Amino acid sequence: MTQTEDPWLGTVPPMADGAEREKLDRSWKPQDLTDILDGTYVPPQPTVGQRADGVGMFYPGRIHSTVGESEGGKTWFALLASAIEIARGNNVLFLDFEDDAGGVVGRLMALQVSPDLIRKHFAYIRPESPLTDGWNKLELTQALGDLRPTYVTVDGITEGMALHGLELKDNTDVAKFGRSILRPIADTGAAVNTLDHVVKDKEGRGRYAIGGVHKLNGLNGAMYMLENRTPFGAGVIGKSTVRIAKDRPGQLRRHALPHSSGMHWFADFVLHSHFEQYAEASLVAPIEQTGPFRPTGLMKKVSDALVTAREPLSVRGVQDRVTGNKDAVRAALARLVDEEFVAVETGPRNAQLHRLVKPFSEEKSQ
């Protein structure tokens, strides 16, 4: 058959038949909606990785992201999921644009994953040239075909995009990186988890990683944000709060608690590093507060505002200095008064002024 010309489609190739037609991309063909319409459709479930109470962390075949500040535990968090999958007898892959094999595998061994299990179920790739060069794409395809991993970590998105000549802040380039590298990996059935950094400005970062907003918008799985409470390091107990910044399939938030930030509290990630070669990691479910509401993050901000104030502040004075919902800021101030961190004094015209008695610390209050 010969090609034809269409005023809208342009050059139209001949219609393929039989086996040749099956090889073509059929994504523009209307999908079969039978299972959705007859009620048999089952939404995607997070079955990869596991919180301590058995709740899964990642959706198979979807793209996720874990973001946080440097040394906030992102790599340890990802390797905990790897260790869980390995313990289940599944294979995992670590695609690393940032570190080296010694650092990554050393941490996995510190989590007490044996060398034999690592040899059998873990693969590490450290790209030094773009996927489009030489045999690179074939090598990755071969590795994915041999491993059939259930979980793939992609560390160093900034470095990975730079390696491929893509601009971090360009949403088109962000989408291109996802479409050409992340999506094909997820299409094998693996849960893909990218590790990324947040912007430096704590007040203005919201739910976003550094770079284009498509990093969040392009995810079809979940985004976790790690808020570090106690730094991670050899010989110390590090702790980060894990919040859900996005949950496209909507099956994770039911296992989390609401938070004043708008992001649900999914877990506390704790890493007890006894020494460099031995660490214990745990992902603990949030505990519903039975006592008074304690917005600890806002309580710390209010305390800091009162530290820097030249004189005692009214409620409005506190609200003017602390970003956030005004009612939530008022509630945080009230908790500080009830817990005797702040004293209330009567000022001119019977104004209620607030003076800091002692600084508030989130770590010491937990």
Rank of each mutant, 00 (worst) to 15 (best):
H259L: 05
V213Q: 14
L216R: 15
F269S: 12
R248A: 13
G233K: 03
H259A: 12
L252F: 05
L226I: 04
N220Q: 05
H255W: 10
E227R: 12
P249M: 04
T241C: 04
L257K: 02
V213T: 15
A256Q: 06
A267Q: 10
G262V: 01
M263R: 12
D247A: 03
P249Q: 02
E280V: 15
P231S: 04
S240Y: 00
A267R: 08
M263E: 15
L219E: 07
R248L: 13
L271Q: 08
L271S: 11
M263K: 11
S273T: 01
R248C: 07
S260W: 09
V213F: 08
R248N: 12
G233I: 07
Q251H: 07
F266C: 07
A209E: 11
P231E: 03
Y224D: 09
A256Y: 02
L216M: 14
K239A: 12
H272I: 10
H255A: 15
N220Y: 00
S240R: 00
P258N: 02
F232I: 00
P231M: 00
Y278M: 12
S260Q: 12
K246M: 10
A222S: 15
R207I: 14
A256S: 14
H255V: 07
G238R: 07
F266Q: 11
G212P: 07
G233T: 04
A234C: 05
H255Y: 13
A267T: 09
A222L: 07
D268V: 06
R207V: 13
G238T: 08
V270D: 04
Q277K: 13
Q277D: 15
A209D: 06
Q277G: 15
S261C: 01
G235M: 00
H264M: 10
Y278C: 08
T230G: 03
R229V: 10
G206S: 11
L271C: 11
V270T: 14
W265H: 15
H272G: 09
L216Q: 10
G233H: 01
A256F: 03
G262W: 00
P231R: 04
D247C: 02
G250R: 04
R254Q: 11
G218Q: 07
V242N: 08
I210A: 13
H214G: 05
V270L: 09
Q251V: 09
H272L: 09
R243D: 00
H255R: 08
F266M: 14
M225L: 11
L271I: 11
G250S: 03
T230M: 10
R229E: 14
V236K: 14
P258L: 02
A267N: 09
L252I: 08
R243V: 10
H274G: 00
G235N: 02
L257F: 02
H259W: 01
E227W: 03
S240D: 05
S261E: 04
L226V: 02
L252G: 01
